[in-house]
Design a protein around this nucleic acid. Sequence first.
DNA 1: TATGAATGAGTGTTCATTCAT
DNA 2: GATGAATGAACACTCATTCAT
Lengths: 177, 177, 177, 177
Amino acid sequence: MILETAEDLFSRNGFEGTSVDSIAKKANVNKALIYYYFENKEDILSSIFLSVQEELIEHLKTEISENKLDVRNKLKNEIIYLRGKKNVISLILMESLKEKQGNFLFKNAEIAIKNNQSCDDQNMMVNEKIYLKEFFTGFIPLLNYIAFEDKLCQYLNCNKDEAMNYFLESFISSHFK
Amino acid sequence: MILETAEDLFSRNGFEGTSVDSIAKKANVNKALIYYYFENKEDILSSIFLSVQEELIEHLKTEISENKLDVRNKLKNEIIYLRGKKNVISLILMESLKEKQGNFLFKNAEIAIKNNQSCDDQNMMVNEKIYLKEFFTGFIPLLNYIAFEDKLCQYLNCNKDEAMNYFLESFISSHFK
Amino acid sequence: MILETAEDLFSRNGFEGTSVDSIAKKANVNKALIYYYFENKEDILSSIFLSVQEELIEHLKTEISENKLDVRNKLKNEIIYLRGKKNVISLILMESLKEKQGNFLFKNAEIAIKNNQSCDDQNMMVNEKIYLKEFFTGFIPLLNYIAFEDKLCQYLNCNKDEAMNYFLESFISSHFK
Amino acid sequence: MILETAEDLFSRNGFEGTSVDSIAKKANVNKALIYYYFENKEDILSSIFLSVQEELIEHLKTEISENKLDVRNKLKNEIIYLRGKKNVISLILMESLKEKQGNFLFKNAEIAIKNNQSCDDQNMMVNEKIYLKEFFTGFIPLLNYIAFEDKLCQYLNCNKDEAMNYFLESFISSHFK
DNA sequence: TATGAATGAGTGTTCATTCAT
DNA sequence: GATGAATGAACACTCATTCAT
């Protein structure tokens, strides 16, 4: 409950823009209790990141098995799945841009890319070239789509399904030439 | 000087992660003087965003004129230009993900996309489809490359020129099929 | 075990500088258990003081019996004995200087002085004059020597035996003219 | 004003037993203002100690000049002078007993002892032996007398002048044999 | 006895902002 | 323009203490 609330607030206002007080209040727990479970505010963030990573690994396993679908439907399912992770995705993108942050985003991209690689071609190594390609034309656009979808639909005054279809079309035609 | 310092600190630590005190100290000005020039902390951020937008418009004008170059060299020049704007790009990406933020990123993308459009085909409207395509397969990857270039090169243990070439290659082959 | 740990931490960091948490952690007991044995934090301190007083009385009894030794050797033995009580002595000196503290130090001095008096001259009352003399030229220098011995040896860069001998010499020649 | 108040509260309740809040309240200043003048709570303590040391050095200079008086009257004047420093003396004694504290007490004792030495015998070095003698039979009893005078008079139910005379008598006869 | 979880009030410290000059 | 001083509210974090089991 604390972690869910923290994730929500962090993703809305950023890590520094969220007070532990506000987490406590929204999660309906005593502030001191938060410090009973977490060493400090940073530890809350780390815990969120840790559980995301575990979930990602778990998710990638299940993904491999549903091989029957075509690319478009696979991606559609992926987007629907990722929408549920919108908050944490925004948070990761946001915090990864800061100086102090570690390589959480890069590491997770590596995990995901390695996983995809192993489907297509078992022998291919994840070298810099592949990493950069997958990262900037696959990973980043996808995560940013999830993070910006709502706001952008509002800005463009279009509905989400339409936007998703347009995004899918251009993403597929660009990423899987 | 104040704006430059603020831009630097905001981009490193985020808006909320930066105190007006720290800006004053680093810019070597009295803290109260900052409040003489700016209404409040938010106003500093707005001013940065405003000048970025003006600069973007100016930049897009000059870009049109250098039509002699091929796509690759045009992009290379663009990346070299944008590298000088790394801080503010990180800042915009970072802050645009927050709830309270407006549509600054979307507006600037629109300006840039319209500009590009007008080169290729003056009559084509910037509809949702085009916007989404350009935004997620052009604008976002490019800005994220600028923002993450240094950190990612460190993570992958490769040099910037190599990384840029790989990025350019995959960006061109995906974005300009 | 709790009392020993508390004594140790109180003497190092002072009463207010020591948290019940830190006592529990260092004593390897549950924090709530401390409150099962002691009413509150103050009660821990009182218990320490109480047991010190009991020990003092016991100690003074045994002291009388070993009358065969000369002053110097008696004092030497006393210092060696008191060294084992260094922590609690520091604690008493420290806390006795605070406003809220009672007369624990004065009372114990009285007990000790009365005891000494009764050896020399049973009929002599412990009047103010004697008390003040014994307190400030006997009790206080001795306890402070115990409390400061280690730190002072480090400061003066001398060894403990040497320091003790010098202390004994000046203490005897001043206190037992 | 802040320093005076802090000195007062620190000496009553100890450093850790005094909150910055309480200092601000009693000194009638905004709490944040305290942090405008001092880096942190420790810095307040250091500042007190620093000014004490400066005052001590200044005081020792003036002391040398009034050579006409006999020992007893000199000491009496000294006690009257030190009474005005009662708070800070308690504080120093108290804090010096803690683990984390530096050698402030020892250093000041050294300054004072060196000064006295130079009066009596210019050629005599302040070696360990002299230091220990002066520290434990001179410095410590005197400071403790100042620190405990009031409380002890209350405990013994005697008046201050009487107590001072008794103390002076035993101090002189022990320290200046 | 013993413990994990919980809490209200407090801690030191920093914040954005203002004011008098 | 420019500054040192000032402030109330908030900050992250810890405290002594309690409760349910």
